[in-house]
Amino acid sequence: MRIDIDRDVCIGAGQCALTAPRVFTQDDDGFSMLLPGREDGGGDPMVRQAARACPVGAITVTEAAR
């Protein structure tokens, strides 16, 4: 899976970090970012739920090409 965060859209609500804290965190300015090594979601089943929880739709989850 591939996770993209549109930092131009992100408002720093933090719902992603609350929903999937093993994948998402917030930077020093409060905006969403992926934890190091979690660019593929790390197998966390909450990644899609975290994307849906984003109030501005800044997170996109897509399946990796095979």
Results as ranks from 00 to 15, higher is better:
Met1Thr: 07
Asp4Arg: 15
Asp4Cys: 06
Ile5His: 10
Ile5Asn: 12
Ile5Lys: 11
Asp6His: 01
Asp6Ile: 01
Arg7Phe: 04
Arg7Ile: 06
Asp8Val: 01
Asp8Trp: 03
Val9Met: 07
Val9Asn: 04
Cys10Val: 04
Cys10Lys: 03
Cys10Ala: 09
Ile11Gly: 00
Ala13Thr: 01
Ala13Arg: 02
Gln15Cys: 13
Gln15Gly: 12
Cys16Trp: 09
Cys16Lys: 09
Ala17Asn: 03
Ala17Cys: 05
Leu18Cys: 00
Ala20Asn: 06
Pro21Asp: 13
Pro21Leu: 10
Pro21Ser: 11
Pro21Val: 09
Pro21Gln: 12
Val23Gln: 02
Val23Tyr: 03
Phe24Ala: 05
Thr25Ile: 02
Thr25Phe: 05
Gln26Lys: 09
Gln26Pro: 11
Gln26Phe: 07
Gln26Ala: 13
Asp28Ser: 14
Asp28Thr: 07
Gly30Arg: 03
Phe31Val: 03
Phe31Met: 12
Leu34Pro: 13
Leu34Cys: 13
Leu35Pro: 12
Arg38Ser: 03
Arg38Asp: 00
Glu39Tyr: 08
Gly41Asn: 08
Gly41Lys: 03
Gly42Arg: 00
Gly43Trp: 09
Asp44His: 07
Pro45Gly: 09
Pro45Trp: 08
Pro45Met: 09
Val47Gln: 10
Arg48Ile: 01
Arg48Cys: 01
Arg48Gly: 08
Gln49Asp: 09
Ala50His: 13
Ala50Lys: 12
Ala50Trp: 13
Ala50Cys: 12
Ala50Asp: 12
Ala51Cys: 08
Arg52Ser: 15
Ala53Lys: 01
Ala53Ile: 01
Val56Leu: 08
Gly57Phe: 04
Ala58Gly: 07
Ile59Thr: 02
Ile59Leu: 01
Thr60Asp: 14
Thr60Met: 12
Thr60Phe: 06
Val61Met: 05
Thr62Pro: 02
Ala64Ser: 09
